[in-house]
Simulated scan of single mutants.
Amino acid sequence: MSDTQVSELLAELASLEDPRARAVNERHGDDHGVNLSKLRAIAKRLKVQHELAVELWATDVTVARLLALLVCRPKLYSAGELDAMLREARAPKAHDWLVNYVVKKNPHADELRLAWLADADPVVTSAGWALTSERVVKRPEGLDLAGLLDTIEAEMKDAPDRLQWAMNTCLAQIGITHPEFRDRAVAIGERLEVLKDYPTPPNCTSPFAPIWIAEIVRRQEAPSAQV
């Protein structure tokens, strides 16, 4: 892949910067101001180009890294490469996209999940919890759900924000998808009160686990009521 193409793409991305969007994104820790629909349009034009993705990631430019995650081939990364990328991805959006668009589709996902859950860095640990939530929903066989609830009950209240959010998501997913643990999941949420007062826009579901669980279960049990 030519350095020229990478330079041209960086220039194109820079031309799409919107100061107002950057101001909003920076409040969430993301240092870019590019509209994500426009970014996805560039990715659609480029199609899958794994070598280009590797070079875009190496630029250390957040929006270029987001583009890299859209045009890469997830299964080609080694576990070591993904571990290094996660530790470099300090911007929340790059972190989330890396986990959701790439790691979840990689054959090393569960190996990384276990390693990250045991990591001392709470941002890295949050990725392990995100992958655990995926397994809770799609492939719970072999998971110790009661043990996960024990850990959440003991550690979520005082966890740093990003880790707390990931643990809370796992708590809610256990309650939603595993009826035998629902009452306990709701009770943990009610006792810890994590995200109880989180500002939730109209027509959106609160991330407070008891409300989240109740709302999704209600929708699942009344499918005919959904439009």
Results as ranks from 00 to 15, higher is better:
38 K>Q: 15
51 E>F: 00
27 R>A: 02
33 G>A: 11
132 T>V: 13
140 P>K: 10
111 E>T: 14
175 G>D: 03
185 A>D: 04
75 K>Q: 15
37 S>W: 07
209 A>W: 03
105 K>E: 14
138 K>P: 00
93 K>A: 06
106 N>K: 05
213 I>T: 02
59 T>C: 14
42 I>Q: 12
149 L>S: 10
119 D>E: 13
57 W>M: 07
53 A>R: 07
190 E>R: 10
29 G>C: 06
132 T>H: 08
71 V>Q: 10
87 R>L: 09
86 L>F: 08
31 D>P: 02
155 E>T: 12
121 D>M: 15
55 E>H: 11
73 R>S: 14
84 A>S: 15
8 E>A: 04
139 R>Q: 15
217 V>Y: 07
225 A>N: 08
201 P>V: 01
152 I>L: 09
21 A>L: 15
29 G>R: 05
8 E>D: 07
222 A>E: 14
31 D>N: 08
80 G>E: 15
177 T>F: 10
154 A>T: 01
1 M>W: 09
9 L>Q: 11
186 V>M: 07
158 D>R: 07
112 L>D: 10
155 E>F: 03
76 L>G: 03
161 D>L: 04
222 A>Y: 00
122 P>W: 13
174 I>F: 05
176 I>M: 04
50 H>G: 08
177 T>R: 13
43 A>H: 14
164 Q>R: 14
107 P>F: 08
204 C>G: 00
44 K>S: 14
82 L>W: 15
146 A>E: 15
200 T>G: 04
150 D>H: 12
35 N>F: 02
57 W>Y: 11
163 L>F: 04
30 D>P: 01
85 M>C: 12
80 G>F: 14
57 W>N: 12
76 L>W: 15
150 D>A: 11
9 L>V: 02
121 D>V: 13
123 V>G: 06
22 R>H: 13
61 V>D: 13
120 A>C: 07
217 V>D: 08
108 H>R: 12
156 M>A: 05
83 D>F: 10
202 P>I: 01
73 R>H: 15
183 D>Q: 06
55 E>L: 11
134 E>Q: 07
147 G>A: 10
31 D>K: 09
104 K>A: 02
152 I>W: 13
77 Y>I: 06
164 Q>T: 00
111 E>R: 14
52 L>C: 09
188 I>L: 06
103 V>G: 00
137 V>Q: 11
157 K>D: 07
